[in-house]
């Protein structure tokens, strides 16, 4: 396996080439569904669903944009769904970043009665997903009179319900880990300069945590953009649905003879793809960070 051959003027191990081929095949299996849906969304229905499957989109001059145009028409509330998703995800992200940064800092840097029990309680409850509590959560939303509004989704999600497996305290945990890594001397120096704890937090700590806050925001935004369950249970009005739930309502009436839903899937995935391409380093780093420390 350690034999070498010459390729592009470089000596390369045969095992390296074999490995690359295996990984390319795996990579194709991973991205095949995305290739297919993109190609299918640009073809007439009969062509898109005919076999053998067409993995690559047609030539640019032959793109069939009929289904994308349909999404813009009034008959399908696709952009209403997209706007709802954008609105809900933004509110959830802002809310979680705000309280997560505050509480994460306090749990990392302050000593106060009740700290241990409060934090422990949240960490334990972090394991309980929203699927367990949904019946009671629904009742609470009824008491707060917010069912069928986006608040029924955003309020619980701000406190972690939409982050899979990390209900309750996801943002707090992540920010606490970060602030724990900042040396205590930093706070002491600020205190000697006469800065109070709140001023130290705003003027020194938040700027230092900028990239961590950005990572948290990206993760929370992506998860809430994709969240299905909470919206599905809480909202029962088509015009208030988010994209993941709403897209299924597009699917039903057009199930036969129409692949407008594939165009909808493409447009729903593109924002995530853009966020990933731009923030990929941050995402991967912070996911790993949470994983390792978790």
């Amino acid at each position: 396996m350690n034999k070498k051959i010459t390729l592009f003027g470089k000596k390369i191990k045969i095992s390296t080439i074999l490995l690359t081929i295996i990984m390319l095949i795996l990579a194709f299996l991973v991205i095949a569904p995305f290739l297919w849906v993109f190609s299918a969304s640009l073809r007439p229905y009969s062509e898109a669903t005919s076999l053998p499957p067409k993995w690559l989109p047609p030539r640019f001059s032959q793109w069939n944009l009929k289904y994308f145009q349909k999404l813009f028409s009034k008959s399908i509330p696709f952009f209403t769904f997209m706007f709802n998703s954008l609105k809900m995800s933004t509110v959830i992200t802002l809310g979680m970043v705000f309280h997560g940064t505050l509480a994460g800092y306090a749990y990392a840097k302050f000593e106060f009665p009740g700290k241990k029990i409060m934090f422990a309680l949240m960490m334990v409850a972090m394991m309980v997903p929203v699927q367990v509590t949904i019946v009671a959560l629904f009742k609470i939303m009824t008491i707060l009179k917010v069912t069928n509004t986006s608040w029924a989704v955003t309020l619980p999600s701000i406190f972690g319900a939409s982050c899979p497996g990390l209900a309750g305290a996801f943002g707090i945990f992540m920010m606490r880990q970060f602030f724990l890594s900042i040396p205590r001397e930093m706070n002491e120096a600020a205190a000697i300069d006469g800065a109070g704890p709140i001023r130290t937090f705003i003027t020194i700590m938040v700027p230092m945590a900028k990239s961590m806050i950005a990572s948290l925001a990206i993760i929370v935004f992506t998860f809430s953009w994709n969240d299905y369950f909470t919206t599905f249970i809480m909202i029962n009005k088509t015009e208030r649905l988010s994209l993941p739930v709403g897209i299924l309502s597009i699917k039903q009436p057009y199930a036969t003879g129409d692949n407008v839903v594939f165009a909808a899937v493409v447009l729903s995935i593109i924002p995530v793809l853009l966020v990933f391409l731009i923030g990929q380093k941050w995402i991967i780093k912070s996911m790993t960070h949470v994983g390792v420390k978790g």
């Binding site: 705000f98 505050l102 509480a103 306090a106 937090f201």
Partner: peptide, 13 residues
């Protein structure tokens, strides 16, 4: 400051 910072998330929790 500690309670000011932790109360919002704890009440939500």
């Amino acid at each position: 400051a500690a309670y000011l910072f932790t109360i919002p998330s704890f009440v939500g929790f």
